[in-house]
Design a protein around this nucleic acid. Sequence first.
DNA 1: AGAATAGTGTCTGTCAGACAGTATGGG
DNA 2: CCCATACTGTCTGACAGACACTATTCT
Lengths: 239, 239
Amino acid sequence: MESEEQYLKNYDASRFPSPIVTVDSVLFTLHEKQLCVLLVKRSQHPFQGLWGLPGGFIDLQQDNSTQATATRKLAEKTGITPSWLEQLETFSGPNRDPRGWSITATWFALIAWEACQPHIATVSDVQWCPVANLESEALAFDHATIIASALQRLRQKTMYSLLPVYCLPDTFTQTQLQEATEAILGQPVQRKSLIRRFEASGMFEDTGQSVATGARKARLWRRKPNIPVHLFSRNLLPE
Amino acid sequence: MESEEQYLKNYDASRFPSPIVTVDSVLFTLHEKQLCVLLVKRSQHPFQGLWGLPGGFIDLQQDNSTQATATRKLAEKTGITPSWLEQLETFSGPNRDPRGWSITATWFALIAWEACQPHIATVSDVQWCPVANLESEALAFDHATIIASALQRLRQKTMYSLLPVYCLPDTFTQTQLQEATEAILGQPVQRKSLIRRFEASGMFEDTGQSVATGARKARLWRRKPNIPVHLFSRNLLPE
DNA sequence: AGAATAGTGTCTGTCAGACAGTATGGG
DNA sequence: CCCATACTGTCTGACAGACACTATTCT
């Protein structure tokens, strides 16, 4: 009987046909009260010239997880790592990639628009696309489906957490959080409800500063470091 | 400039090193008020002889998604397809499989114990392991981590849906649902709260039959066909 | 009748929705 | 001083928790 050591020495990974494996990310941000998603113009086949999600192949030498691949690819396109990153579904099948049976591990990310802008402004193959305009864009692969799944996740989590803060700059006002929440949900929310949650979450601290946006000054807040996202036991907007 | 057609004709998927790709499932059931998970004894290296999750390689000819792989492997071990199946996280990295850089798409499934028993009773390499006994089991790969993730998902969903019914036979009593819920959450729940949700969900219909379990007869219910799982806007047991 | 299980009535507490009311700072 | 924006007070309604109560069936 063969030992595990011997088995591993003789193991040839290429013996079995393997699917094409990729990693793709859906990075959202907020800009001018619009929820936007990051798209990259494809410079290579397949779907050359179309817009698609940032992503690509795993680098088996460098990446020690698909999360590392996602982070690396996002950093290439935005110059930074997103302030929120979590795994979404994995999509697979024989027909979603014309090159053959494929599987893509997808990630869902949030970032402040301001944080990426310095880098994105310098390149022409990366754009923020408002989700409202997605219908008129033809996207590569099944990326429209992946974005729809990410949007659903984002909306769901916005109902029972304050996740939208990860779309805001380091310091922000309660009104900005409200606007972010409303842009994501596509409908108004009660400011009072949001502020009750804001206080109950224990996730934020007052910077002591304030900013004028026209009339009365608004207090500036920041996320406390190393505090996990608070999950509420009730949803906003329960229909 | 190369056309996409030409590019695809010349494309050789084996040009790039590819990770090992597998699919694994965490199938839960309820037996004697205990939440159990399906384990399979590994007949092959690596981890030969240890218990692990049911799963394996994608059959690129037969399977048209990782869901098909999960269903196929579960059917091999239990004789049937689970009544609930949804995707969990995908785990990846250079060290989780001694054969090399690997990725496993994992699925989370529920089934009634009674439905599998005829098949499972006939084989010796498959067992239901109560989750309470998992600590003392050495499992293959990172399967303990995968089960922990599945358990967390199950508990979370039990708080805001009636998912535990998918661990019950086709017809069941409200008391059975309560016991399932309590076994999953590991603590008692208010029967009244559960029944309020049961009625509000619109997911069930009375069979007209009833069953005696010692004293007063209990009504037997069944899931209405083709009704999606109802999600409540509040959690049970909000701490 | 008594025991055990099935199922209901109803009070309290929590928190979201609604919206009126107060505070602050720029013209 | 006016008004826009920031922020607070407080009432209502929905629904979970708690637990006492009634109903049914077996011995």
